[in-house]
């Protein structure tokens, strides 16, 4: 006979309270997403009822058809994808190189620390105070409303983040492994390519994911630097809010379409994300 241990009542109450709390948090976090998805599938007539329709019985894909049949929307999604991918790759790679140098090469006059703070300073400004100078710069270079302008701006915004994240990683990386590579005869480049880079892949993916998510959803710079050709999906969504009309259905459908890639990305790289959150706290 296996004896079952019964939980004391106090423990059961505590457990129930815990579940209730978790449920409350889940509702707060998930309800807007549910509402968005529901809206993208509701019939037009269900939008303005009172009380609102929380559980629609009849659903339609009309809004998606409407959104996707408009070539402009496809263009916006494509713009977002291209800009985000290119900016992420460049920022992650350049930021990693930058962090490696700052972590490994001791420059004179405490230049390392100064540079690190300087890199961080750009993150201390409210983004809006940077958007105007960026606008003026891009206008002078004739880059307004180009994807290149967005890539440049996003790389600039993401670099400090990647550099700092990768810096903590490189600082934790045992120096002896690189020294072993030196003794084994590696040049500095071989050392980076064969030893440091393979060991950094996970951390680079982590920083890349964060950058990707940040850039994908970015609105302010996209709004400032683009008009039509380079417009991204986040700008397109916001422009549904017009002065005299608001197309809830299409707006929700485009929103769902735009967060799908992020959702898929997040689910497929979950273990990296968890690692990224505990970055530096617990070493693997």
């Amino acid at each position: 006979m296996i004896r079952r241990y019964s939980h004391p009542p106090r423990e059961i109450v505590a457990r129930i309270a815990l579940y209730v709390a978790v449920l409350a948090v889940l509702v707060v976090v998930l309800f807007p997403i549910y509402w968005l998805v529901l809206n993208s599938l509701k019939y037009q007539r269900d939008f303005f009822t009172n009380p609102p329709v929380f559980f629609a019985t009849q659903l339609t894909l009309d809004h998606y058809r409407g959104v996707l049949s408009n070539p402009l929307n496809r263009q916006y999604l494509w713009n977002t994808f291209v800009v985000t991918t290119v900016a992420t790759i460049i920022a992650t790679f350049v930021g990693t190189l930058c962090a490696y140098v700052l972590a490994r090469i001791r420059m004179p006059f405490r230049l390392n620390g100064t540079l690190l703070v300087a890199i961080l300073i750009s993150r201390l400004f409210p983004p809006v105070s940077l958007a105007i100078p960026y606008y003026l710069l891009m206008r002078n270079f004739g880059l307004l409303d180009t994807r290149l302008a967005l890539v440049i701006a996003y790389v600039g915004l993401a670099l400090p983040f990647v550099t700092w994240l990768m810096l903590t990683f490189f600082q934790d990386l045992p120096k002896e492994i690189e020294r072993a590579a030196m003794v084994d005869g590696c040049t500095m480049f071989q050392r980076f390519r064969w030893v440091v880079l393979p060991m950094s892949v996970t951390s680079m993916i982590v920083s890349g994911i964060f950058v990707f998510m940040g850039v994908w959803n970015e609105l302010l710079f996209a709004l400032t630097l683009t008009a039509l050709r380079a417009k991204t999906v986040s700008v397109a969504i916001s422009s549904f809010v017009g002065d005299n009309a608001l197309d809830w259905g299409q707006m929700s459908a485009l929103s769902v379409l735009s967060f799908m890639p992020i959702l898929i990305l997040a689910l497929s790289v979950q273990r990296f994300l968890v690692r990224g959150i505990s970055f530096g706290a617990v070493k693997g």
Binding site: P174, E176, I177, R179, A180, A181, G185, M199
Partner: peptide, 17 residues
């Protein structure tokens, strides 16, 4: 450099890749 010197070394932490 270590390569030119032709030196081999075992590290305290072993420093395996």
């Amino acid at each position: 450099t270590a390569r030119q010197r032709g030196i081999a070394m075992v590290f305290q932490s072993y420093a395996l890749y």
